[in-house]
């Protein structure tokens, strides 16, 4: 009985990944445009760092090569984190826009399967798109990654997956709470994460209130940890505190966000909000 239920849910899980793959394929032109947009954004950040010397900053005042690498790693990671966050956070908005939301919510599957299926598809796609941009960077910049500890970077990257899913699922609740304003609120959350998580600067430069919020963002630990691993060869043992914080955040955020989503679904069904598109 449990085996059958698990098989049923696994089948649906595969269905969500398959569906997203088909959607990415069918919207290939948009995906190509977004890939180009991301690539251009990351390249712009790289050239901004390269151009600092022409703006009057003397080589002695800062290690421009390190600065460039610092900014590029931030830009590349933000490409990945924001993409995965966006895909999960806008899962409900997307279905409402397509007109399929009621069909998906009526299906005999656990909501957890639905959310994890969407998340898995986002992660796979996010990694593929970010890897493509990462490879492109090699041809544009003379990157010195000789000190990089790839194992540590990978471990932090993997640990960051859980809290990232939690944040995405939390944000996907917003369009369920408010069909009219949820989408805009989700964009606002994404903007705030960019500001407070230290994508292009250490969060210590932020004013005190924003600094405190930044400490609570899992993306802060992901960005600083991966940077340390790639730029200064942070060992796996040295990264354990960051990994532990990320896992702890994930263990709290994922169940809490799924619980919130379920409560929001109950509310949407009570108020008849599933169907409304704006």
């Amino acid at each position: 009985m449990i085996g059958n239920s698990l098989r049923w849910e696994l089948n649906a899980f595969v269905g969500f990944i398959e569906r997203q793959k088909n959607l990415y394929r069918r919207y290939w032109l948009w995906e190509a445009v977004w890939l180009l947009y991301n690539l251009v954004s990351v390249l712009s950040i790289g050239y901004l760092a390269a151009g600092l010397s022409t703006l009057g900053l003397e080589p002695g005042q800062a290690n421009l090569h390190q600065t460039q690498l610092y900014l590029l790693v931030g830009a590349l990671l933000w490409t990945y984190l924001s993409l995965v966050f966006f895909e999960i956070a806008f899962a409900i908005t997307w279905e409402r826009w397509e007109g399929t939301i009621e069909y998906t919510f009526m299906a005999p599957i656990k909501r957890l399967t639905h959310l994890l299926g969407m998340s898995a598809a986002s992660l796979i796609y996010g990694i593929a798109r970010t890897a493509a941009i990462g490879f492109a960077l090699i041809f544009f910049f003379n990157l010195d990654l000789s000190h990089a500890n790839w194992l540590t970077a990978l471990a932090i990257f993997a640990a960051a997956t859980l809290p990232l899913l939690g944040l995405g699922i939390f944000t996907s609740v917003l369009p369920l709470l408010s069909p009219e304003k949820g989408e805009q609120m989700a964009f606002a959350v994404q903007g705030v994460l960019l500001l407070i998580s230290g994508v292009y600067y250490p969060i210590s430069v932020l004013p005190a209130p924003l600094h405190v919020v930044g400490i609570l963002s899992p993306l802060t630990y992901t960005l600083s940890g991966v940077r340390e691993a790639l730029l200064h060869g942070l060992s796996l043992a040295g990264a354990l505190p960051d990994i532990a914080i990320l896992l702890l955040m994930g263990v709290i955020l994922v169940p809490a966000s799924v619980w919130c989503f379920n409560r929001a679904e109950v509310r949407a069904k009570r108020l008849g909000l599933l169907k409304r598109s704006g």
Binding site: W8, N11, A12, R19, A107, P108
Partner: peptide, 14 residues
Amino acid sequence: ENMLYAARLYGSGG
């Protein structure tokens, strides 16, 4: 693709 998605949600699709 739409029907395959539906089949997956309802326990088939193989």
